[in-house]
Design a binder for these strands. Sequence first.
DNA 1: CTTGCGGGATTGTCTGACATCCTGTCAATC
DNA 2: GATTGACAGGATGTCAGACAATCCCGCAAG
Lengths: 241, 241
Amino acid sequence: MEPLLSELSLLRSRTLAEAIQEEVLRLIRNGALRTGEKLGEVEFAAKLGVSRATIREAFRALGESGLLTLEKNRGAVVRVISPAEADELYEVRAGLDAMAGARLAPLITTEQLEKLEMLLAGLTDCASSCDVAAYYPLNVAFHDSIVAMAGNATLLRLYRRVINLTHLLRRTSFADAESFAASAAEHRAIVDALATRDPLAAAEAMRRHVHAGYARMQSGRRTAAGADDAAADTLVLDAGV
Amino acid sequence: MEPLLSELSLLRSRTLAEAIQEEVLRLIRNGALRTGEKLGEVEFAAKLGVSRATIREAFRALGESGLLTLEKNRGAVVRVISPAEADELYEVRAGLDAMAGARLAPLITTEQLEKLEMLLAGLTDCASSCDVAAYYPLNVAFHDSIVAMAGNATLLRLYRRVINLTHLLRRTSFADAESFAASAAEHRAIVDALATRDPLAAAEAMRRHVHAGYARMQSGRRTAAGADDAAADTLVLDAGV
DNA sequence: CTTGCGGGATTGTCTGACATCCTGTCAATC
DNA sequence: GATTGACAGGATGTCAGACAATCCCGCAAG
């Protein structure tokens, strides 16, 4: 974790606790920290080269954001999300995405449509070459862009919070070209609906995509059950939502 | 063994920082802390009888929750919400309420309907007697109950976060019986729509109510502009949303 | 009026300390 | 053998104090 320190000393505009907060989020996102894992204060402080007080500030913020579970006298663990909570999470996410779609559709500009088309082109490229590793960040950017374009910063904040929580779910990639194609088609449908400028159509396209993606993720996990080895753990990919 | 546990369990399960967090929220809610007010660490630590470290943990969590704005080397201030952000906030709230309504309508039980009817009866009582002080908490309870009944804990968490943010807005009460009546009618419409068990109708009733309530709040503030004296500051009431 | 310059106040961060609580172990007991 | 009790070790909750970096404000100079 030496690279963190060099980065920290360079970023004077951020507080140490904030930097650590982001670092933990990064560690969760890329799978270095896994669900249920315990984060000892002294251990973490030593590893990151900061004091316990700073670590505790970061942990408390992460607890408030829902990424960590803090229990008194028992420390912090990476939050465990039950299947039921995952359902809830994706239902809420579908609702937020639908909101963004409904808001954006009537106001979307041609530049924004072009940007989405560009992202979509990248997505279909990755899909056709089955490059799952490249697909994931593009997919995240695609959805984040739509919500950001909706022009409601409060909505964007909530959306990103929910997205961060979804990173706590063990992500499974779809190896089959079929799922790739379905995901790509849904993305296409979203952009088309936005181009129509019809709020309801855009909202529905978004909602359908999230639900379908979640369903793909669940079926993917179901088929991948048992093959839960180290390779699967380092595989950090989304379900094509 | 119950009596002892009541006090002990509170201290055992709650950390000092968490208690302070709630205390600050309470102070914001009842108007003791006003928007834009600065919270000095040492001052607050002395006032609450805790150390700076604990205060900083609480402040960081509150910053993450959006109630405080933390700027490096500049301290914490109660977040200031611009009119544009207020618009965003209520739009998001309308969306969340609509989600809850849509989810609850098909599954609502008769007991739940009865509870809502009871809350509604209390609301109309307060409305007819123009008891604004009693109206506010009932109103909050009414809406919170609906979202809680929706059975999506994640949604409820997000909803409460948004509601907490709305507490940062200077609330203005409607003195006129007209607004009272409108609010009561909308609540009636919500319960009726839920009783229908039609998701779309319930969602629309919720959404309309939030938007109408926000409009009432804005018009109330507009007419109350200028009469912005101490009495108005201590008046902690909602806009009948 | 603007600019530049202290100096006090506040924040960021660390160290060290101590009481309390949790956890795992091991022996005593039933 | 399972349950209980006691105990040591480690982790957390909270505090006090320290110090550098930074901000803020007033005042003098231009």
